[in-house]
């Protein structure tokens, strides 16, 4: 749960960088699926509920540096 008034955490993809390596889906299987071409489909509700260290690990594992946290 996020505190009232706090923007929910979101995992955002820079689509110009993402090459579909798929490590994010391997590291966050409950929140990230891959589409028919291997690019991530992110369930933001699941990201909001995931543990922060797990999400940070996925961000730093991305070979293309395409992931970052954003608030919306």
């Amino acid at each position: 749960m996020t505190a009232v008034g706090a923007a929910p955490r979101q995992l955002s993809v820079d689509w110009t960088r993402c090459d579909g390596h798929g490590l994010c889906a391997a590291l966050l299987p409950a929140a990230v699926q891959l589409d028919d071409w291997g690019y991530p489909i992110i369930d933001q509700a699941a990201i909001a509920g995931a543990s922060e260290p797990e999400v940070k690990r996925a961000i730093s594992a991305c070979p293309a540096l395409a992931l970052r946290m954003a608030t919306r």
Partner: peptide, 12 residues
């Protein structure tokens, strides 16, 4: 062609 879902999705 710089974003995968567009580069692969639109031709499909």
């Amino acid at each position: 062609g710089q974003c995968g879902p567009c580069a692969f999705g639109l031709p499909a």
